[in-house]
């Protein structure tokens, strides 16, 4: 069931990689909803299906069973950085573009003029206090800096839903916390919902809603979670 504030809604949705004997079930009959302004931490062991679920939310993976919809978004979000912004675990910057160009890229792809996109990119970088990194190439950035530039890219596009797939997975704790701070700051600025998958309990503890996954099954551990419907448990 969706309403005007439901950005993503899954109904007994599942995703299976491959077919036949080699089929791997990554997500099993998940039912959940992400609403505007939500702050959700998605945790669970490796291979539990966190990334697949985030990719389903971003429209990058199709549900192979059940149904998903993005009621409050403007159509299917795949390849629409103005609707859903996604940050990956590894470096997701284009190595041959500097930080400003990387941030401006989705805007130019979306049809904005290069000059305007550059201004927006510089603005986003400025809002995250990353001006000193603006002219640097990805190879010249540390892992944490690269992830913060990726956050700036999301911020510049102004999505309603931000998805971060283990953004701190390759960073030390201090850098990881810094990246999460920037993510939250960006989501706050945009008034966007934020879903972060993480292994780190300390980071998960900072979010109001905390979901966990085991073997593709989603369970909520936060005491009051309006965005979660545990149909699989019932």
């Amino acid at each position: 069931m969706t309403d005007a504030t439901t950005l993503f809604h899954a109904e007994r949705a599942g995703h299976t990689y491959g077919t036949g004997a080699t089929a791997v079930v990554a997500v099993r009959e998940v039912s959940c909803a992400v609403t505007s302004g939500a702050r959700i931490a998605l945790s669970g062991p490796s291979g539990s299906g966190k990334s697949t679920l985030l990719h389903m939310m971003a429209g990058l993976e199709q549900a192979t069973s059940g149904s998903v919809d993005w009621g409050a978004l403007d159509g299917h979000p795949a390849g629409r950085p103005d609707q859903v912004g996604i940050i990956f675990q590894g470096v997701s910057l284009i190595p041959s573009l500097n930080a400003v160009e990387n941030v401006a890229l989705p805007l130019v792809i979306g049809g904005m003029s290069y000059d305007e996109a550059q201004n927006r990119a510089r603005d986003a970088i400025g809002r995250l206090h990353l001006e000193s990194l603006a002219a640097k190439l990805p190879d010249e950035l540390s892992g944490g800096q690269a992830q913060r530039i990726a956050v700036a890219r999301v911020l510049a596009a102004g999505p309603k839903l931000i998805l971060a797939d283990e953004p701190t997975g390759q960073l030390d704790r201090a850098a990881g916390i810094h990246v999460v701070d920037v993510l939250v700051e960006a989501a706050d600025e945009l008034g966007a919902a934020l879903v972060v998958s993480t292994h780190d309990p300390a980071i998960a503890a900072r979010f109001a809603s905390r979901w966990t996954m085991h073997d593709g099954i989603l369970a909520s551990v936060s005491p009051h979670d309006d965005d979660f419907t545990d149909r699989t448990a019932s």
Partner: peptide
């Protein structure tokens, strides 16, 4: 098209 400056910048670095 309008990606020309980005493409040129990328090619310049490569």
């Amino acid at each position: 098209g309008n990606l020309a400056p980005i493409a040129a910048a990328s090619m310049s670095r490569q």
